Amino acid sequence: MIYILPLLSVFAGYVISLFLKPSSSTVFQLLLSFSGAYLLSVTVFELLPEVYSSGSSEIGIFIMLGLLLQIILEFVSKGVEHGHMHHNDDTGTFPVLLLVSLSLHALLEGFPINHSGHLLHGVVIHKIPVAAILSVFLIRSKISKIKVVLFLTIFGLMTPLGSWLHKNFEVLNPYSVYINAMVIGIFLHVSTTILFESAKNHTFNASKLAIVILGILLAYFI
């Protein structure tokens, strides 16, 4: 499931993009808010206590490094990780830098999910709206369907690859707590941005508030 679900979530996002307009669909925006709330909650409830239990005094530094890394990556991705896409359409060229940026993000988020089913669910839920937004951009950019499939497949494989590397390369074990701390920084930035940017005028309505509370409760009790 660790290797299959992230890939399936990208495929689900592509299918959603064919039937919904992510930028204007209320259902899509609520899904995005739910994913942000769930991902943030799992990060706070599980990942944070785990990395701080290591006793390292440098955990906070790596959390902030992860946050800064995500900000840098978003200079290239233009915010697709949190449900926005600001690239110009109709370019007709394969977006290599975008793929590199999203692949690094996805690769890192795969490292900690070996040890947390809840985090796996959070990543999967998060990937669905991200893949939908990304699919819309790729289709509008006028690149061939084969290149769209290639892009989404590589992106979908990066998270399973991160999990596989973490599981099979023991040389990474001494650094896993620091990698996980960087992932926490990435998740904190992405999830909080989702919560505050996915609503018009940055305000909460009753539906969004309810779905955010639901995401928090599910992350806590499941």
Rank of each mutant, 00 (worst) to 15 (best):
L152F: 01
F221R: 07
G185H: 02
L104A: 09
P129L: 00
Y3R: 03
I222M: 10
S53N: 14
T26P: 13
I216N: 02
S54W: 15
K21E: 02
G36S: 05
L30H: 07
I72F: 15
L152M: 05
F196N: 13
I186L: 12
E81S: 15
K21Y: 00
W164I: 11
L39F: 13
P6F: 14
A131T: 06
L47S: 14
Y178F: 14
L209W: 06
S116R: 03
L67Q: 09
L138I: 05
T193L: 12
I186W: 08
T26C: 06
S101Y: 04
H189Y: 14
V148S: 02
L161A: 08
Q70E: 15
A206Q: 11
S23D: 06
H115D: 13
T153M: 02
L48M: 15
F221I: 12
I63G: 14
I139C: 04
S33F: 05
E81N: 13
N114K: 14
L73N: 10
G36F: 07
I184R: 08
F169L: 14
I4E: 09
Y3M: 12
L157N: 07
L188A: 12
F204R: 10
A106S: 13
K145L: 06
V136R: 00
S103P: 10
S207W: 08
L104Y: 05
I143F: 07
F111C: 09
H105G: 01
L40G: 08
R140G: 05
G117Q: 04
L20H: 00
I4T: 14
F187Y: 10
K21D: 00
V80F: 01
I143T: 05
G122D: 02
S103H: 05
F34N: 03
L157Q: 01
F28L: 00
N205F: 02
P174Y: 14
H118W: 12
H126S: 01
G92D: 05
Y3E: 09
L150W: 05
P22F: 00
F75S: 08
F19E: 01
